[in-house]
């Protein structure tokens, strides 16, 4: 396997896999059944949204980690972050939308200097707020140590990646020392009530495979995670989401470099499940990029596949106008429809 640099983003390396057109060409040239044909056979093409329930806002590509599978190609060297002006446009859109949830992601969304201000403004809308917190940010710098209290104050629901209940697999994917820091951060979150029964403060963990294989059954894995994390570290959490790695950006680069690309794609295509397709997250979620452009999901955002609508920016947001669009699809979509399905909220079947 050719060596993959893991300390800087693909973009800074000038790597081809940071280019959306290069990735899309590769995905389309694998000679496998097209995702469009699979949808068509399930009576789902053209792929239409159902009802907008979740507005997922990406606050930027800056992150304190450089995980090997990251579809955002995030890292400390990425400077693209959302401005307060775009946040104001998001607030306006959220106010005018019936969506019940605002989902904040990144990078590490907390590294955006306007993060706390934005959360406070969003709080007044009475919608559920999710923050995708990578855990280690809490202990990365003293200025983040009070994040657990901040989350608690605004009743934020946390979704945090922890690919395994031991250091080996976690660090192999997310970086040296990440497991120990994640455990430390989880202890701080448990201490303010996150994951504690009756507190109403929710922290859900995300498992994703640390390599070219599919995730296990979510319920069985949640059982294992709960018993291991509580037995060994005294940690609590609410639910475990088992998600599939999509062949985008760094994970796609890994697949090709490790010679697993073809087998992995074939595995995804063979595991296509029409029920998972019907429940794909792009049908009830809208994704906003750091620069305010709209996408059907965070993966399409990274592949620069903009919304198929004349309303392509959050400042022109109109729920009615975009409700009849066709969802933009390509071969990476098979990652959402394999087996029990995969979404930002775990399995979909």
């Amino acid at each position: 396997m050719s060596e993959i640099k893991t300390h800087i983003s693909l973009k800074s390396q000038g790597n081809d896999f940071s280019e959306p057109t290069y990735q899309l060409q590769l995905l389309q040239s694998a000679g496998l059944t097209t995702f469009q044909d699979s949808l068509d056979r399930s009576g789902l093409f053209p792929f239409k949204p159902t009802k907008l329930e979740i507005l997922q806002i990406n606050l930027g590509k800056m992150c304190n980690q450089v995980c090997k599978h990251c579809h955002v190609d995030a890292g400390p060297d990425r400077k693209e972050i959302m401005t307060r002006e775009t946040m104001l446009e998001c607030l306006e859109a959220a106010k005018n939308s019936d969506c019940h949830t605002i989902d904040l992601t990144g990078g590490a969304p907390e590294m955006n200097p306007d993060f706390r201000w934005f959360v406070e403004e969003l709080s007044s809308l009475g919608k559920k707020i999710i923050v995708r917190c990578n855990l280690t940010i809490i202990v990365a710098n003293q200025k983040y140590h009070d994040l657990p209290e901040f989350y608690k104050k605004h009743n934020i629901e946390l979704v945090s990646s922890l690919p395994y209940y031991s250091a080996g697999k976690t660090d192999a994917q997310r970086g040296e020392g990440v497991f120990a820091k994640s455990i430390e951060a989880m202890k701080m979150l448990n201490a303010v009530g996150y994951g504690v029964e009756g507190s109403g403060l929710i922290i859900n963990l995300v498992y994703n495979p640390s390599g070219a294989f599919l995730p296990p059954d979510q319920t069985a894995l949640e059982r294992d995670f709960k018993s291991r994390l509580s037995r060994q570290y005294g940690l609590l959490f609410n639910n475990l989401f088992a998600i599939t790695n999509l062949p985008v950006s760094r994970f796609l680069n890994y697949l090709v470099a490790s010679d697993n690309y073809h087998d992995y794609m074939e595995k995804l295509v063979n595991a296509y499940n029409p029920v998972a397709a019907a429940n794909a997250m792009c049908r009830n979620t809208l994704s906003v990029g750091w620069d305010g452009f709209l996408y059907d999901c965070d993966f399409n955002q990274m592949l620069e596949l903009k919304l198929a609508s004349d309303r392509q920016h959050i400042r022109n947001f109109n729920e009615e106008a975009i409700s009849n669009r066709n969802i933009v699809i390509s071969q990476h979509c098979y990652g959402c429809t394999a087996g029990s399905g995969s979404s930002c909220g775990g399995t979909t079947v």
Binding site: Y164, G168, K169, P209, G211, A220
Partner: peptide
């Protein structure tokens, strides 16, 4: 080997 990994087992 693949199946064990897909069932959530680690190398140990």
């Amino acid at each position: 080997t693949q199946d064990s990994m897909e069932q959530g087992c680690d190398e140990e």
